[in-house]
């Protein structure tokens, strides 16, 4: 190729065709995520929407989840999810943010480098292992500690899921705190603030969108959690009555799908309603994640100038 002196005006050599195909494939793969989200919405809607016409509204809007008799009220399940999620958030947000602040602002390097991998280890823990430990260790403990008839309660689920959500909160919040420019802190320190005051007065406010994202995604993780919550919350789809409900069994939306889908006939009302629950969960996760994206609006733009 180098021996002759081909014209600069020569058009594309044949090698360009393979390159064109590869580039096309890459582009198609790039759009794959959009395609999958669309496909997921499509199939959930296709299987779940008929529930709205086939199942009487009085049943859907009623008070009971009792599929055998045709009672398909989502309320007990929504309340179950809500109870567990709120409980978990109350527990996970302070611990998660506290740990993140400690790691990013207070801890010496070696402490940080020991603790971080441990927290990441928790993130990799399969949900059924969490549930297993919940059944074997946490729930007997709760039963004794609060003198309850059963340890499989909303509270048990909240504790367990809250703990499992901590890594999500820690890692995103720590990133956000770490991203606050050093100069902000130094400016505040220079006018005589203590490091403690700087954390609350400068660093946290500056990182607030990241911190908010961390909390939202942590909550998102709790809502979507399935196996662990199914194993430790006692599987009772009842409307909670008063605060005491926290210490009784509940059933979340996710657990309902997981425990009942295996036994339903394809296309039956029950099947459709389980998909309807799936639509609700899908919509919730869309809302949470899109909001989190808008809040943090992290743009992965190349900072480096392209040319020297």
């Amino acid at each position: 190729m180098t021996s002759s002196n081909p014209s600069l005006e020569s058009t594309r050599p044949p090698a360009r065709r393979t390159e064109w195909i590869i580039t096309l494939l890459i582009r198609v793969a790039g759009y794959l995520s959009i395609f999958y989200v669309a496909l997921i919405s499509l199939f959930l809607l296709k299987e779940g929407l008929p529930a709205l016409t086939d199942v009487p509204l009085s049943s859907l809007a009623g008070k009971f989840w009792y599929p055998i008799e045709g009672y398909y009220s989502l309320w007990p399940l929504i309340f179950g999810s809500l109870t567990v999620t709120l409980g978990a958030a109350l527990f996970a947000v302070p611990l998660g943010l506290g740990t993140a602040i400690f790691l990013s602002e207070v801890a010496p390097k070696w402490v940080k480098e020991t603790l971080k991998p441990l927290v990441e280890l928790l993130a990799g823990l399969p949900s059924v292992v969490l549930g297993f430990v919940g059944i074997l260790v946490l729930s007997p403990f709760i039963r004794k500690a609060f003198d309850l008839p059963t340890g499989l309660t909303a509270f048990t689920g909240a504790l367990l899921l809250g703990w499992a959500a901590i890594p999500t909160i820690v890692s995103i919040a720590e990133d956000a705190l770490y991203g606050v420019p050093r100069s902000y802190r130094e400016a505040a320190l220079a006018v005589g603030a203590t490091p403690w005051q700087v954390i609350w007065g400068v660093t946290l406010p500056a990182a607030r969108s990241g911190v908010l994202t961390a909390v939202m995604l942590g909550i998102g993780r709790v809502i979507g959690e399935t196996m662990a919550v199914m194993m430790v919350t006692g599987n009772a789809p009842v409307l909670p009555s008063g605060l005491g409900a926290l210490f009784g069994p509940v059933r979340t939306m996710t657990a309902t799908i997981a425990s009942e889908m295996g036994e339903v006939a394809t296309g039956s009302q029950h099947y459709q309603v389980l998909f309807l629950i799936g639509i609700v969960l899908f919509a919730l996760s869309l809302i949470i994640n899109i909001t989190a994206f808008m809040v943090s609006n992290r743009r992965t733009q190349r900072v480096e100038r392209l040319l020297s």
């Binding site: 299987e47 995604l217 996710t254 899908f282 949470i288 994640n289």
Partner: peptide, 21 residues
């Protein structure tokens, strides 16, 4: 990017439903 973030946020049991469907 939003689609990717959504994919990573969808509850695992919902993936199960989708896979079934």
């Amino acid at each position: 990017r939003i689609a990717m973030i959504n994919l990573s946020g969808i509850p695992s049991v919902v993936y199960g439903l989708f896979g079934l469907g």
